Amino acid sequence: MAPIYAVVSFVGLLDVDGSKPFFTFLESVKECYEALVTKFMALMYSYLNISLSKDIVPDEIKGREIHNSFPMSLFLVQPYIEALKYWTWQFVAVRPICSVLMIICQVFGFYPSWLSWTFTIILNFSVSLALYALVIFYHVFAKELAPHRPLAKFMCIKGIVFFCFWQGIALDVFAAAGVIKSHHFWLDVEHIQEAIQNTLVIFEMVIFSVLQQYAYHVAPYTGDMKTRFENKKTQ
């Protein structure tokens, strides 16, 4: 995610006077990739040797109880492993569809406030359900997943989204309060706000790229970790 977010933000800086549909397109590129990364659940399944397509579930985790937490328990049925997969992957479809519709509305000049709020509500519900499923899955299988550091992997993904989202909210507040003002080099405050956000994202992605090398270390795929584990056992 770090390289893609950085490149998209850099392109936004190159064309800081771009149109609103152009900025919407850039944001959609980042957010659609976020939806793809939500298939993080598939990685967790592979760690546990679960294959729902072949109905393969290891004996040691069969019968593991999965309970809904309040308030999700009020309107969601008892979750099973297969249900958690669909709750997570629905965002992979919802995010791109909403992004495409948003771009089309921007291009044709039909984007009233009520439609913007509709997209926001749909996306927030979708991503909340996906995150809830990931948290429930981690809570139930935390012991088996511990050697793979899933929490660090998850935080590297959602940390990027967290910083970008709340930075955007903070910049909106600063713009509304008059802290961010128009400048003679740009037409309006909105473009300055976009430029600040893109600049901050570029610097933050440098930090996240370093953190991701820890969370998604290459050692498990080179045999180094297995060798160290076997040596430790012999000692």
Rank of each mutant, 00 (worst) to 15 (best):
H148Q: 11
R149T: 06
P150T: 09
L151Y: 11
L151P: 05
A152K: 14
K153M: 13
M155L: 15
M155H: 14
M155D: 10
C156L: 00
I157W: 08
I157D: 06
I157F: 14
K158M: 04
K158F: 05
K158H: 06
G159A: 06
I160S: 14
I160G: 13
I160M: 15
V161W: 07
F162G: 09
F162I: 08
F163M: 10
F163K: 08
F163E: 11
F163P: 00
C164H: 09
F165E: 03
F165T: 15
W166D: 04
Q167H: 09
G168Q: 05
G168D: 07
G168C: 01
I169W: 05
I169L: 05
A170N: 06
A170Y: 07
D172K: 07
D172R: 05
D172A: 04
D172P: 00
D172C: 04
V173I: 13
V173K: 00
F174L: 15
F174E: 04
A175S: 14
A175F: 01
A175T: 06
A176D: 03
A177R: 13
A177K: 12
G178C: 11
G178F: 07
V179T: 13
V179K: 08
I180V: 07
S182G: 12
S182A: 15
H183S: 12
H183R: 14
H184S: 13
F185I: 13
W186I: 08
W186S: 07
W186V: 11
L187P: 02
L187H: 15
L187D: 14
D188M: 07
V189H: 02
E190N: 04
H191V: 04
H191T: 12
I192R: 14
